[in-house]
Amino acid sequence: MDKIAVLIPCFNEAVTIEKVVKDFKAVLPEATIYVYDNNSTDGTDEIAKRAGAIVRYERQQGKGNVIRRMFSEIDAQCYLMVDGDDTYPAEAAREMVDKIFDDHADMIVGDRLSSTYFEENKRPFHNFGNSIVRWSINKLFKNDIKDIMTGYRAFSYRFVKTFPILSKGFEIETEMSIHAVDKNMFVENVIIEYRDRPEGSESKLNTYGDGMKVLCTILRLFRFYRPNIFFGTTAVVLALLSVIFFIPVLITYAETGLVPQFPTLIVCGFVMIAAIQSFFAGVVLKTIYQKNRQDFEMDLYRVTDDFKRKLSKDE
């Protein structure tokens, strides 16, 4: 088991990967540097090897797929994940790692948005998207993570080994943040100095396509983690619509004894039935969710015991 594993997912980062590897080797000399190449065509893997990194491969395209592979293959007391584009400062790594060891935190978030991100990032829609995602998750999930989509994070062993990765692409950071909040993991923020990509290095993030995937991920995870609120709100909206359209029918019936808008009455009945179904779906799914939470807590105990056994073997 490594003491510290620096994980660098890469796709065509030949311009910057050598500097990133060397910077983190200098700041964390005791760490093992892993570069996971995701079908690069510019020689990223060979450059990383020459810089001193252990290079492995993930053939399924997408950052989520790469992180899934890294988390499953590597055992470490502390994991530090960073992008290979040289936008995150290696100087912050020691503070982030120390918080995992000393504070027993589960996830440390490298917070770009509280420092230089909005000045350094030259893509205004990226800035706007990060703000929207942070605001929506903080409101929906009642948390205070300062930077939801940062690629600079540190993790404990128990976080990595209990995190079920479902996302395939850049929405993986959003999934990590929501998982940590929902499972009551200990999360801390470390403010970092963000710098834009150097000349010749291009972002792989599609502002609109990946942005929509992130928003859909938030909605999907909100439905999964907060089913009572999601389906309860849906039930209230459907019930209100049913009542609003039913009132004119009721008034006409009270005045004339007739129901000329019979199709409207039928639709109102079906909409109210849908509202009742949505309400009870939320109740049932909430019960299932509570059972999953109990199972997760037991998994934490098992992972902690496994961690202790591996540590004792290494000693």
Results as ranks from 00 to 15, higher is better:
F163M: 15
V214W: 10
E188W: 04
A239I: 04
L250T: 06
N206S: 14
F246Y: 13
D196N: 15
L215E: 01
P227M: 00
F230W: 15
H179E: 11
A235T: 00
I191V: 15
V187T: 08
S203G: 07
N189C: 04
V249G: 01
F186R: 14
K161H: 14
G169E: 08
F224T: 10
T217D: 10
V160S: 07
S177M: 11
G232T: 06
G209Q: 12
V181R: 08
I178T: 07
M212D: 07
F230D: 09
T174A: 13
F246C: 06
I247V: 15
P164Y: 04
T174M: 09
G200P: 04
I178G: 02
F230Y: 15
K204A: 13
L221P: 06
F170I: 03
R195A: 05
G232Q: 07
S201W: 02
S167C: 13
T233N: 14
P164I: 05
S156M: 11
N228I: 08
F159I: 10
K161Q: 06
Y157K: 04
R223L: 05
K213I: 04
V187G: 09
P248L: 01
M185F: 15
E199T: 12
I191Q: 13
R195E: 10
P198N: 08
F159V: 09
K213N: 12
V187H: 08
I244S: 04
F246D: 03
R223V: 04
I247Y: 09
I251Q: 00
V236K: 13
M185C: 05
L219K: 15
L205S: 01
M212W: 09
V214G: 09
P227H: 03
V187C: 11
G200T: 03
I178Q: 10
E202D: 02
K213T: 10
P227I: 01
V160G: 06
M176W: 05
E202K: 12
M212H: 12
V181Q: 00
I178P: 12
P198M: 03
R223H: 14
N206W: 09
I218N: 02
E202L: 11
V243T: 06
L240A: 13
N206C: 07
F159P: 06
R197N: 12
S201H: 12
L219D: 12
I172C: 05
D210N: 10
L205T: 07
L241N: 10
R158Q: 08
V214S: 01
S156F: 11
I244L: 14
E173K: 10
F163E: 08
L238M: 14
T207A: 14
P227C: 02
M176T: 09
A235R: 01
P227E: 05
L215T: 04
I218Q: 06
S242G: 15
S242E: 07
R226Q: 14
T207K: 06
Y194V: 00
D182M: 08
F222H: 12
Y225N: 03
R197S: 01
I172M: 01
K168N: 13
N206K: 15
G169L: 05
E171N: 13
L219N: 08
R158H: 12
R226L: 07
M212G: 01
D182N: 14
L240D: 02
V181F: 11
G169W: 03
